[in-house]
Design a protein around this nucleic acid. Structure first.
Length: 706
DNA sequence: GAGCACTGC
């Protein structure tokens, strides 16, 4: 194929190393704190001779210390463009603390999009302050509150947790300053928090906000938060500051002509690197598990050939994707002997969620599998789309964390120029029902006029409002109902699940439903190792029941409990042990909420019908009937659907009526998590939604309420 | 016989 140098970008980079080797002689080993799968990792050197104080002063952010404090003093909001490796996440909260921003019991809050990042940054800051985590410095994430309501001065939390905190404390009174880290990622919760904080700031002039962002979005954030309506810049309420990073250059190479097959090209590029480049590990980005496994097996084949021909340096090829069993994931972090070159073939998980040290080469196919939402049909889909330029730079930067690196882009420079500058924010490509419910619960009456940093499509809002009305969470005026809507909003689940849980007591099956809801939150309960597909399928069949996936999940959970939560038992049956343990925790949290709302604890005692009816009470909007063609049609708008191949109902005698949790569109529209129901239940449990036609068929009312 | 990118409460 032949890679030709046609471009070089010296500003793509990235390492967050506190001290690059060149500046700290004798320091070669860096490791990550706390957890190697950390999201936004802080790297530090455990054997340094420098005191922590000296290390802190060497960070690029240090020389901006006074300026940052001045800006926070003078402006309500400060946008900080902190390049990778500048030390902003760990240092700025400490500067604020030292300057007295946490006096009189106030708290400095720092949000992160990911749990592991919140934990690892918190641990680092605690260590720098010579403190135990959970006192002066703490963190709060779902299922793990490691903070002290009285003692904690710097608190790290996920942005989702911050939104939850607003439900109990709408003005976030305990915080003096909030820093939104990684705001440029524009996750759903970051965007919700941003809109809400703007509102809070109008009522709390004393609340300071720091938005940490990438260069590209800084102006957008500044315009959004600047409340100055005059043309006098001295009245601006938002300041901006750029802090340079600690970066290693990454050479970027493009192909001379478009690549017809990036899977093949990935394999060829790895081999070419292996033949002609110096030492250094490789990460290749692909879009999904299937592509990853394909490249891994092709490369392993090649690696065997190479070693047969006596190639001195060995290739160790490892897959990496979220669905991979934990033990296999951990292999990508293992250090290799110098005679071995590690090649990690990964999905987008390696772009932000995990960081692997020692990567010198990146191969980027320019594509990603991304969630999309069709506001007209209300159907979500997973589509392979070209990445953005921002994403391409992020991927390239993965090569230069420890040393200068190289990035091989499997596309032409011309095609790179055609990529969109940044990724569409999640808010504009999501089902908004959960978002709207949250906003309503936070007292935002007119969600259509909520100040969104990037407003979602109006049609997405309408879909969400209609669904919430049908579920009884909103009344005909779009107001949150009490108690149903208020309670639904408290559940950390989608509104349909919340409704199902809240109704389960009246159906007499709350014990079963809470288990089903918890199990449905876990991805990949059934493990399918690529080389043991048959055996795995055989084991999984043992749990399958004719009613469908919901009761099958109930079966799995109950069997897990019956076998004393034994991990070996899980392994024998190809079940995800860690996932099941997580289901226990989720179940416990849901149970607590149900107790709070006095949902009776009861069991169907083996009667499946009440459980199925209860599922219908939440998921009636997701109903489909069997079509004579053999596929299904939605009841709402007669769209063609199919049973997902991972469903236990796939390939079985198809039930006449089904409800499902969600639809994913790949080659077709597939229903995931499907359960057989009776049409009479739909009419009985959602009479406002469905009517029985004279000849016995079922149609939807399509009530337009807004 | 076709298929699940990645987070978060």
């Amino acid at each position: 194929m032949g890679l030709t140098v046609t471009g070089y970008i010296s500003s793509v980079i990235k390492t967050r190393a506190c001290a690059p080797g060149s500046e700290a002689p004798g320091v070669s080993e860096e490791r990550e704190l706390a957890n190697e799968t950390t999201g936004s990792p802080v790297i530090y050197n455990p054997h340094t001779t420098l005191s922590i104080e000296k290390q802190r002063q060497r960070l690029p952010v240090f020389k901006h210390r006074n300026n940052i404090l001045y800006l926070v003093e003078s402006y309500q909001t400060v946008v900080i463009v902190g390049e990778t490796g500048c030390g902003k996440s760990t240092q700025i909260p400490q500067y604020l603390l030292e300057a007295g921003w946490a006096a009189e019991g106030k708290v400095i809050g720092v949000t992160q999009p990911r749990r592991v990042a919140a934990i690892s940054v918190a641990n680092r800051v605690a260590e720098e302050r010579g403190a135990l985590i959970g006192h002066e410095v703490g963190y709060t994430i779902r299922f793990d509150d490691c903070s002290d309501p009285h003692a904690t001065r710097i608190k790290f939390l996920t942005d989702g947790m911050l939104v939850r905190e607003m439900m109990a404390d709408p003005l976030l009174k305990k915080y003096s300053v909030l820093m939104l880290d990684e705001a440029h990622e524009r996750t759903l919760y970051t965007d919700i928090a941003i809109g809400l904080l703007k509102k809070i700031q109008k009522k709390r002039r004393d609340l300071r906000l720091i938005v940490a962002s990438a260069t590209l979005d800084a102006k957008k954030f500044q315009d959004f938060f600047n409340l100055n309506e005059t043309s006098d810049p001295s009245k601006d309420t938002c300041g901006i500051l750029t802090v340079e990073g600690r970066t290693h250059p990454v050479d970027v190479f493009y192909t001379v002509s478009p690549v017809p097959d990036y899977v093949k090209a990935t394999v060829e590029t790895v081999l070419k690197i292996h033949e002609s480049e110096d030492d250094g590990d490789v990460v290749a980005f692909l879009t999904g598990q299937e592509e990853v496994e394909k490249v891994v097996s092709m490369l392993q084949e090649q690696a065997r050939t190479l070693s047969r021909y006596g190639m001195k340096k060995h290739l160790r090829v490892l897959p990496m994707y979220a669905g991979l069993p934990y033990a296999d994931q951990m292999k990508v972090f293992e250090r290799m002997p110098s005679s071995v070159r590690k090649v990690v073939v990964a999905t987008n998980i390696a772009e932000t969620s995990i960081t692997i040290n020692g990567i010198m080469f990146v191969i980027d196919c320019a594509f990603v599998k991304m969630r999309a939402y069709n506001p007209r049909t209300g159907i979500e889909s997973l589509v392979v789309t070209p990445i953005s330029k921002a994403s391409a730079c992020q991927r390239a930067g993965r090569a230069g964390r420890n040393r200068p690196g190289k990035c091989f882009r499997l596309y032409t420079e011309e095609d790179y120029e055609k990529l969109p500058p940044s990724t569409v924010p999640e808010m504009q490509r999501s089902n908004l029902a959960p978002v709207i419910l949250q906003l309503k619960a936070l007292g935002i009456d007119n969600v259509l006029r909520f100040s969104f940093l990037s407003p979602p499509p109006a049609q997405s809002m309408v879909q969400a409002l209609e669904l919430l009305y049908a579920l009884g969470g909103l009344d005909q005026y779009g107001r949150l109902t009490d108690p149903m809507g208020v309670r639904m909003a408290e559940f950390p689940l989608s509104p349909m699940f919340a409704k199902m849980l809240l109704e389960s007591g009246t159906f007499g099956c709350s014990k079963e439903i809470v288990t089903i809801a918890a199990m449905m939150q876990i991805q990949n309960i059934f493990l399918v190792p690529p080389n043991q597909k048959k055996a795995a399928a055989r084991e999984h069949r043992k749990f399958a029941v004719a009613e469908g996936d919901h009761l099958t999940m109930l079966n799995v959970y109950e069997a897990f409990i019956k076998h004393q939560k034994n991990s070996q038992w899980c392994q024998d049956h190809f079940l995800n042990y860690k996932g099941l343990i997580r289901a226990l925790t989720v179940r416990e949290q849901l149970r607590r909420l149900m107790n709070k709302f006095k949902v009776p604890r009861n069991s169907s005692e083996g009667d499946p019908d009440v459980i199925l009816k209860c599922i219908v009470s939440g998921f009636f909007a997701n109903a489909a009937r069997l079509h004579h063609s053999g596929s299904y049609r939605t009841l709402r708008d007669d769209r063609e659907l199919h049973i997902h191949p991972n469903s236990v109902l796939y390939g079985e005698k198809p039930p006449k009526w089904v409800v499902f949790n969600e639809v994913v569109q790949t080659s077709k529209y597939y229903m995931r998590d499907v359960t057989a129901v009776e049409s009479a239940w739909l009419v009985e449990l959602a009479p406002h939604f469905y009517r029985q036609a004279k000849h016995g068929s079922l149609g939807s009312k399509r009530t337009k309420v807004f």
